[in-house]
Simulated assay, not measured.
Amino acid sequence: MKKKSLKKIVLTGATLSALTLGTLSTFTVLSSETQVVHAAIPGWMKKAFFKVVSAVGSRIYNVNASVTYGKYGETITPGTINFNGYKGSKYGAEVVYNVNALSTNHSVAIYANTTPFNWGKKISVILRNPSGTRLINKSVTSGQWSGVAFSRKGNHEVSFVSNTKTNWTPYIAYRYDTGYKVYGRSSTPIVTEEIYEETSDYGKLVIPTWNEDNTESSSIKNKKLNIHELNNQMLDDNGMYIYGLRDFEADEKIQFEDTIQTITYDSNINETTFVFDKEDAESSSLKFSGDLRNNFSDGDVLSLNFNTEYLTEDSNTFIVPDYYKYLIDNNNEAPNLNNFLQENN
């Protein structure tokens, strides 16, 4: 499968601290020093107020506030939001942003992204017109998007609502034509600017974006991946966790091996979580059904096999490990560990 070419852009903490407000390639970076954003962002968002999330390390899942410019419009994100006081944040269940519709010939798409550990969890995306009428009101998982053409000009409200303590990165894409007007599912596959693709089972999904240089692919396939290497397989060159794999095709096997640092058990949902990096427990964990505390201890090495498969039968674009497909298809419920142990596969 040919992978879409894109110049890779890395936004590091050092880069952000050196900028107050500037442009890096096609990205306008909103630095941690700037709490209110005015200039250099599109006119349709000039009155937006963003709490900018500063970088906390290359391994931590933390997307910085930014604007990306495309052929037909712009996409803006306020950065990663920790909902409902997660990690001590001041955010509640909802964040709201204003979008000024400049023309009824324009359109907007809204979606959110989170780490693979959270795949299958839901977030509500809502778009209200100037009268308060909901034009979009959907519960979606990571990477699913909803779009609509504006029926009137003026200020619209975009809301992202999460009922769990989870980190999500909201995205708002404004287009200077009606290219995002298709709302809901369609029987005809739709590709919009090669960014989104319509699927019959999962609605509209963000398409993975990769550099064409896969020189390390063969060596990666022959090694045992730790949790960070596994996550990086699903992190594309736009800095989004997507339903795709950087170096693997469908019907291949991923060997996983990492040392357990901490084991936690949630009796309310009967799930055990293995943490492989305490500094980033959520992004660096795997969870399984049942109480496994008597089977494993801190310091044990966990060896697993994951089989790669297409997310949906009607598209060969989206490929995920079977472990994560289970999370997606079962509302983030944990699978059975025995299905992945190397001694059983």
Rank of each mutant, 00 (worst) to 15 (best):
T169N: 06
I328H: 07
V320I: 04
P335Q: 03
G57I: 15
T308S: 10
N84W: 03
S146E: 08
S124L: 00
Q342T: 14
G43A: 06
S31L: 10
W119K: 09
T188Q: 15
Y176E: 14
N118M: 14
K325N: 15
I220Q: 00
V63R: 14
A101Q: 14
F83H: 01
F27Q: 06
Y202L: 00
K253D: 11
D291F: 00
T26G: 08
D280N: 01
E212T: 15
N305D: 07
E229C: 11
L30F: 14
T104A: 12
G13Q: 15
L19T: 10
E343V: 06
W168T: 05
L341H: 01
A39Q: 11
Q255S: 14
H156I: 09
E197Y: 01
N270L: 08
T115H: 08
L235M: 14
A55N: 12
I190S: 04
Q233L: 11
E309H: 13
E94S: 11
T166Y: 08
G147Y: 10
V191A: 06
I110D: 09
S142Q: 01
A93N: 15
N294D: 15
A109S: 11
L292T: 13
D291A: 00
G203M: 11
R134N: 01
T199V: 03
I126P: 09
P170M: 02
S107L: 10
N231H: 09
E212I: 07
L21Y: 06
K278S: 15
A39W: 05
D314Y: 04
M45S: 02
P42S: 12
K46Y: 14
L341C: 06
M1C: 05
I227Y: 05
F248S: 07
F276Q: 10
Y243K: 13
I319D: 01
K3D: 10
G203W: 13
S303I: 01
I263N: 08
N82L: 07
V161F: 07
E309P: 03
L16R: 14
D251E: 13
G203F: 05
L292R: 13
I269Q: 13
R152H: 03
K221H: 01
T215E: 11
I136Q: 07
D291V: 04
L16N: 09
K325W: 03
E212R: 10
I207M: 09
L286W: 03
P78S: 15
I195H: 02
L21W: 00
S315C: 08
D177I: 05
E333P: 07
Q144Y: 05
V37K: 04
H228V: 09
E309F: 13
Y183E: 04
R152I: 04
N232G: 12
G154F: 13
N113C: 07
T308W: 12
D177K: 00
N231G: 14
I195R: 03
F83Q: 04
I207Y: 00
Y86S: 09
Q255A: 13
I9Y: 12
S159N: 09
F318N: 00
V191H: 07
L245Y: 08
S284R: 04
E212K: 12
S89Q: 05
R152W: 00
V63E: 14
I172E: 11
E313V: 04
V52H: 10
T262I: 15
G13Y: 01
A93P: 11
K2D: 06
S5Y: 06
D329F: 08
